[in-house]
Simulated scan of single mutants.
Amino acid sequence: MPRPTTTGLLLLLAIGLAAIPAAAKPQRIVSLNLCADALVLRLADRADVQSVTWLARNPDNSVVAAEAATVPVNHGLAEEVAALRPDLVVVGAFTARTTVALLRRLGLPILELDVPDTIDGIRAQTRRVAAALGQVERGEGMVAAMDARLAAIRPPASHPLAVVLRPNGFTAGRGSLVDEILARAGARNLAAEQGLENYGQIPLETVALAGVRLLILNQAENRDPSLGEALLDHPILAALPDLRLVRVPSRLWTCAGPEVADAAALIAAAARQAEGAGP
């Protein structure tokens, strides 16, 4: 007997999905995006979450690794998602387009998230997801908690010059969420002052000559080194006596979510220490 094709399997699943009644509040939610995982797991009732991405269990990049440990995971395949008979699939702007297109063809409800580049955008997206999940009150609570953490930040008086260096020398300039995070932390952004828009690269010579006080790395303490970060061992950086390294775990700002408040607080604390004002 011949094995059914992928198209045949999807057709059978579509027939089954058509029999699922629409619900005012989704009760079979699947997430196909790491950043969506964080919102879904914190806003939805656990019983309503059918699956999140396998990335959600990685504590280096996920803020919900503990919550995801007991949730089934997926690898973004249309067949495995459709088999869960979801009544809402949350995807990101860069989620595999073939998968998203197939799920749309099946008539599945899709909530597609963009990538906020401002804190206002984070507020709006949190509320949008909360509304889609039927959890408006929880969404407001999450926004209020982020705003409280932002309000509690004590920026330094001197506003030290800072630069964020990611693997291969990439940094963030004007118009980026990182630039707003640095401003909230009370630090000046070298890349923005150099005229860089959004994201790009900055020469180490520029960093060395500008008098940067804070070199912010997108990594946690005690992380294994990588070739992409080899430039951070360059002698030109080691020769800067007043340079303070600040390590911000990727999970705090890989996604544009409420955790950026914690990233800003961490940078602000390092900035105060750099000016000798204490922790």
Rank of each mutant, 00 (worst) to 15 (best):
G200Q: 04
I110R: 03
P155I: 03
S31E: 08
V178S: 12
I202Y: 11
Q201H: 14
I119H: 10
R213D: 01
R188F: 10
A131W: 10
A78W: 08
D117Q: 12
G173Y: 07
P258K: 10
P26C: 02
L133I: 01
R154H: 11
A271T: 04
G76A: 00
G134S: 03
P160E: 11
V73L: 08
A265H: 08
A44E: 09
Q201K: 15
E229V: 03
V164D: 14
N61K: 14
A239E: 08
L102H: 04
G257M: 09
G228L: 09
N198H: 15
L9M: 15
H234I: 02
V164E: 14
V81S: 01
I122Q: 01
V143P: 00
A96E: 15
A263D: 02
E80M: 07
G8L: 12
E137V: 09
L12R: 13
L43A: 06
G76L: 00
T254R: 14
E197D: 14
V248D: 13
I15D: 15
V115I: 08
A14C: 06
A82N: 08
V71H: 05
L34N: 05
T6F: 13
H75S: 12
E67S: 08
A271Y: 04
T70Y: 11
R138V: 00
A256I: 07
E180G: 04
D114E: 05
H234Y: 05
T98A: 15
Q273F: 14
R3N: 15
A239S: 11
L231I: 11
V136W: 13
D117P: 05
P225G: 02
R28C: 01
N58D: 14
G200S: 03
G134C: 01
L9T: 15
L17V: 09
A145R: 09
I15C: 15
R138M: 05
A124E: 13
V63D: 12
V30W: 05
L103H: 02
I20H: 07
R272N: 05
I216K: 03
A256T: 06
T53C: 01
Q125F: 00
G200T: 05
E137N: 08
L103N: 03
E259R: 13
T5R: 11
I122E: 01
Q135W: 10
L103P: 03
A183Y: 10
V64C: 11
A151V: 07
L204K: 06
R213L: 02
R97F: 06
A265R: 14
I181T: 00
G195Y: 12
L55I: 07
P72E: 02
L177G: 02
G175P: 04
L215Q: 00
G16H: 14
A47I: 14
W54A: 08
E197Q: 15
T53Q: 01
A157R: 11
P156R: 07
N189T: 06
P59N: 01
A191Y: 09
A69Q: 09
L55R: 10
L133N: 02
D114K: 03
D60N: 11
T118S: 13
A101Y: 12
A261Q: 02
R28W: 06
E137F: 02
D224R: 15
E140C: 09
P4A: 07
F170L: 13
P258L: 11
R154F: 10
F170G: 08
C255A: 07
A18S: 12
V71N: 09
N61L: 15
P86C: 01
